Computed example of a mutant assay.
Amino acid sequence: MRLQDAQPQEGSRKRRRRVGRGISAGQGASCGFGMRGQKSRSGSGTRPGFEGGQMPLYRRIPKLKHFTVINPKQYTTINVSQLASLPANAEVTLSSLLEAGILTATKGPLKVLGNGDLGVALRVQAAAFTKSAQSKIEAAGGSCEVVA
């Protein structure tokens, strides 16, 4: 087989439709576009997404910068400044904060945030720490332990 022998398969190529060349050609007069209206005229017709003047779908839906998280993680948050009132070398957990009265309710696991200053060394056990909270606790001589 040579390159000049390569031909398309029989029946795969159809001749183009010659419209507007008389009634005997099968597509005479209106060329299959119907009688009147925007879609029968020459030119491209309407742009994609155009709905005849009705507010199109892509403008009706809400514009979101991002999709909301379906099941967001709920944390019980506490700032480093609230831990400053605890005694030195105390072990800080979610249950110990509830007993001490610093927290009154729980929404989920404990997360320590970095707002404020800490002057005492504490052993903090929480599900999550912000970077600033972890650095402040360790700078005061304490330790941070991530618990599941």
Rank of each mutant, 00 (worst) to 15 (best):
H66R: 15
K107M: 14
F129E: 03
S95E: 14
G108C: 09
Q27C: 02
T77W: 02
T106I: 13
L57G: 02
E10F: 06
R59Y: 00
Q82N: 07
E145V: 15
G116R: 08
N71L: 06
G142V: 02
A140C: 08
R16P: 14
P8R: 04
R21F: 07
L57Q: 08
Q4S: 15
S42N: 12
T106S: 15
M55T: 13
S95L: 10
M35I: 09
L98A: 05
E138N: 10
T76C: 15
Q27G: 01
L110A: 08
Y75R: 03
A127F: 11
S96W: 07
I23F: 09
R36S: 11
Y58K: 03
A139I: 02
P109Y: 02
A140Q: 06
S96E: 04
D117Y: 02
L98Q: 07
E145S: 14
L122K: 04
V147Q: 10
E91K: 13
A90F: 07
R36W: 06
A6D: 01
P56S: 12
I137Y: 06
L103P: 09
K14E: 05
R60N: 05
R16N: 10
G20F: 13
D117K: 10
V146K: 15
V124C: 10
F50S: 09
K131V: 05
P87H: 05
G108L: 07
V146F: 05
G142K: 05
S40T: 09
E145Y: 02
S30Y: 11
G114A: 07
E51M: 13
R21H: 13
S30G: 02
S12Q: 09
S132R: 10
A29H: 10
R36A: 07
R16A: 12
M35K: 12
M35G: 08
R17L: 12
R15E: 12
P48R: 02
K107H: 15
T68H: 10
S40H: 07
A100P: 00
R16C: 02
T130I: 05
I23Y: 02
R36L: 11
R13H: 03
A100R: 15
G37W: 01
K107Q: 15
S95D: 14
L103Y: 06
E99R: 12
M1G: 15
